[in-house]
Amino acid sequence: MTLAQRLLDLGLVLPETAAPGARYAAVVVHDGLAWVSGQLPRDGDRVIAMGKLGRDIDIPAAQHGARIALLRGLAALRDELGDLTRVRQILKLAVYVNSTEDFTGHSAVADGASALIYELLGPEFGKHARTSVGVAQLPRDGCVELDLVVALA
């Protein structure tokens, strides 16, 4: 089953575009790997999950934001590659969580994206390395930002 078909089966639609907001590449492809730049939980220009964990937004809302950010990352891949047929495995997921100093649930927020990767790619290719860290702030007050390293066929 293809990644595009799995997205359809789950009722998920990728954003129309995931173009970068400045002078950098949304995706760089080199030697069979795709490096996907940081993605916020955006719908068009609007950030849909904003604020600091531990103060403004709860973990379930931030997990949803992480899922949206992952879908934007996949849209960026699609835009760069033409489609998603070459995506073999997401090797590395880095998740940055906008959080208060005393918040410690960063990994729970990252689980929103990790669970979706597993749902999309299955037990064999859904395995990925991951880092989740708390940060003082993120662009446009997003609650989460993520980037990816992807193996291509």
Rank of each mutant, 00 (worst) to 15 (best):
A66V: 00
Y24R: 12
K52P: 03
A115H: 08
L93A: 06
I117G: 01
G126K: 04
A113I: 12
R46N: 06
G126M: 11
G32Q: 13
L91A: 15
R67I: 04
D56A: 08
V47I: 05
A19V: 09
D58Q: 11
G44R: 00
E80G: 04
V149P: 08
R42D: 08
A69I: 02
G38V: 00
Q137A: 15
Q63V: 08
I68H: 03
P139A: 02
P123F: 03
Y118L: 10
Q5I: 06
Q63S: 01
L84K: 05
T17L: 08
P41W: 01
A22M: 12
H64E: 14
A69F: 00
P20M: 09
P139N: 00
A76W: 07
P123V: 09
A75T: 02
D111P: 01
G112V: 01
G105K: 08
A4E: 15
I59C: 06
A108P: 02
W35G: 09
Q63K: 10
L91K: 15
I59T: 14
A108T: 12
L40Q: 04
T131C: 02
L74Q: 07
Q63H: 04
H30G: 02
G65C: 00
R140K: 07
L70I: 11
A66E: 09
V29P: 09
Q39N: 14
G126Y: 03
L8E: 15
G142W: 00
F103M: 11
G126H: 03
D43F: 08
A129Q: 15
L120H: 06
K52R: 14
G51Y: 02
T131N: 07
G51L: 04
D9P: 00
E101H: 14
V29L: 07
Q89P: 10
G126P: 00
D43A: 08
E119L: 09
A75H: 04
A62N: 00
D58T: 05
I48Y: 06
L93Q: 08
F125R: 15
A61N: 12
T17S: 14
C143R: 04
G32I: 10
P60N: 10
R86I: 06
A129L: 13
A69G: 03
A61H: 13
L10M: 14
L84S: 11
S114A: 15
E101K: 11
L7P: 10
R130L: 07
H106T: 13
A108M: 10
L81F: 10
D43G: 07
P139M: 01
L93N: 03
H106L: 05
L40S: 02
E16C: 04
Q5V: 09
S114C: 07
V95L: 08
G142Y: 01
P60Q: 07
V150Q: 12
L152Q: 15
Q5E: 15
K52C: 07
G112Y: 03
R88S: 14
L74S: 00
A69Q: 08
A113Y: 10
R6M: 13
A34P: 14
A69W: 01
A4H: 03
Y118K: 02
R72A: 09
R46M: 06
F125M: 13
V95M: 04
D111E: 14
H106G: 06
T104G: 13
A18K: 01
L81P: 15
R88Y: 11
A115V: 14
K52H: 10
A153I: 11
S99R: 13
R55E: 14
L116K: 05
D43I: 11
G73K: 05
D45C: 05
D56M: 03
A136R: 14
R72D: 05
